[in-house]
């Protein structure tokens, strides 16, 4: 029972593409996959020649394939980009060690410079230390908020112009559903864009926005790319887990569901008059924030005050408390009031 490649090349097919249901051989699959990523990059004008691109590298499947493909496309199509790998070590014993080893192998194989920054370097706390303080219920909040900023801080240190992450079509569909379920309209709007940028922060690009996870994993498998898969030893984000299971169940029933969700998300427009949080910069650290003080700084302040749960849940209350303290010590009262 051998299926021929739909492209008519005469070779045997090795996979059914979820996006199109075509049966393709290895060679035609590589071509289709690489060309689609190239098309995403070109049609959205994702990068400009001469830019330094920080590839957020976790050692997992998505970022490993991303590093490989970006290097390949950069050479093949003369993008003129300087690519660097940037890894974040959360400080979780037994979790990051092996995946960082895999990033180091990528560094050698793809001949790309690598920088590893730890939460300890950036925030003074490892995730292991944070878990000791907050327990296992809210630790993912800390990790997620810190990671988002960590990549940015690292990329600025390395004088990069843009950050590229391995977020794939499945991730984007999952995030659209999550934002919809939470009624988070501002994020629902933002999460579908191929590149997000706001003033004072580095743009973040998602070259794999339309690439299915199945294709990324099979690309890595057939190309024998070396990646590391693991489970975080701390509790996974349960809400995201549900959204993820839903996306996967829908994909099993009808594989175009993922691209359809993204399409729907892209077409959603916020009606006039809806008030959205204003994006500004954090008055404490200067990174992008929709509040006077960013979530990372509020979480950190809570940890450093020995009240780690300060910012969990109603963060406005925590913010008010921290602000009140800060205002007592500052003369620039009026400028902060303007931001409220």
């Amino acid at each position: 029972m051998v299926v021929q490649c739909s492209a008519g090349c005469g070779c045997n097919a090795v996979l059914k593409r979820p996006k199109t249901n075509d049966a393709l051989c290895k060679t035609c699959f590589y071509w289709a996959f690489e060309t689609e990523v190239h098309h995403t990059i070109m049609s959205t004008k994702m990068f400009q020649s001469g830019q330094v691109v920080a590839i957020g590298a976790s050692g997992g499947k998505d970022s490993t394939v991303l590093a490989y493909i970006l290097k390949h496309l950069n050479e093949k199509y003369n993008y003129g980009l300087k690519l660097v790998l940037l890894s974040i070590d959360e400080g979780i014993t037994g979790y990051r060690d092996d995946s960082l080893e895999s990033v180091k192998r990528n560094q050698e194989e793809y001949n790309l410079p690598l920088t590893v920054l730890s939460y300890k370097d950036l925030y003074g706390w490892t995730m292991d230390d944070i878990v000791k303080q907050v327990g296992r219920k809210n630790n993912c909040t800390f990790c997620g908020v810190f990671r988002r900023q960590a990549l940015e801080r690292g990329a600025i240190l390395l004088n990069c112009d843009v950050i590229a992450t391995g977020h794939n079509a499945d991730d984007v569909a999952e995030t659209i559903l999550m934002n919809l379920l939470r009624g988070d309209i501002a994020r629902l709007q933002r999460c579908t864009s191929h590149i997000t940028s706001s003033e004072g922060s580095l743009p973040r690009a998602k070259p794999f926005k339309y690439a299915y996870e199945k294709e990324i994993v099979l690309y890595a498998y057939f190309k024998k790319l070396d990646y590391f898969a693991t489970e975080c030893v701390y509790a996974p984000d349960a809400y995201r887990g549900h959204a993820r299971a839903l996306v996967k169940d829908l994909e099993a029933l009808r594989s175009t569901s993922i691209i359809d969700i993204i399409h729907a998300g892209e077409q959603l427009a916020i009606k006039d008059g809806v008030k959205l949080p204003k994006q500004g910069v954090c008055s404490a650290c200067g990174f992008v924030s929709s509040n006077v003080i960013c979530k990372a700084c509020v979480l950190l302040e809570g940890l450093n005050r020995g009240r780690p749960k300060l910012a969990i849940g109603k963060s406005n209350k925590a913010l008010a408390e921290i602000l009140a303290d800060r205002l007592a010590n500052t003369a620039s009262l009026s400028s902060v009031q303007d931001q409220f």
């Binding site: 029972m1 996979l15 059914k16 169940d249 099993a252």
Partner: peptide
């Protein structure tokens, strides 16, 4: 009766979706 969605299956290095999945 199925593998959990999100687990890929290959039969002799080809996607099992090409060879009938559970019926192979």
């Amino acid at each position: 009766d199925m593998v959990r969605p999100g687990i890929l299956v290959l039969v002799n290095n080809a996607d099992w979706e090409l060879v009938g999945q559970l019926d192979y």
